[in-house]
Design a protein around this nucleic acid. Structure first.
Length: 117
DNA sequence: CGAGTGACAGGAC
DNA sequence: TGTCCTGCCACTC
């Protein structure tokens, strides 16, 4: 049973190291832009931080939203910096580190092979 | 003013 | 009950 939530987590895990994704991008990956609310919803109510790199999900500005559910913004920043993501004035440099159309396609393809859609 | 964005909340199935 | 979706709405470009 490939629930949507699982796909969301899978998509998050498929975000390459050194990149971050936004809610809308994840939603677009699911094929429904209207899921953009559900993405945040799913991440929040299912804090499987151990297996889901939630720190790669930021809002469109490159900030993590207020209720970061896994330890604190410092942890996220540290993790991302370790992966090579650059920060500007405390937020992710989205112009360089948000996923590209290329990444989008790659993730989409992998998602497809994982769930055999 | 119009379009994009939400780490929600609640309703629908 | 759980999963999915959609509305509201404030805020920023």
């Amino acid at each position: 049973m490939t629930s949507l939530a699982e796909k969301i987590y899978a998509a998050v895990r498929l975000v390459p190291c050194g990149k971050v994704a936004t809610y809308s991008q994840i939603a677009a990956l699911m094929g429904n832009c209207n899921l953009r609310r559900y993405v945040g919803n799913a991440l929040h109510k299912n804090p499987s931080n151990s297996i889901t790199p939630c720190h790669r999900i930021v809002n469109a500005k490159g900030f993590c939203s207020g209720s970061f559910a896994f330890g604190g913004g410092d942890v996220q920043k540290n993790k991302l910096e370790t992966e090579g993501v650059g920060f500007i004035d405390g937020h992710v440099d989205m112009t360089r580190y948000s996923i590209t159309q290329d990444d989008f396609n790659a993730i989409s393809a992998e998602l497809m092979s994982i769930f055999y859609e």
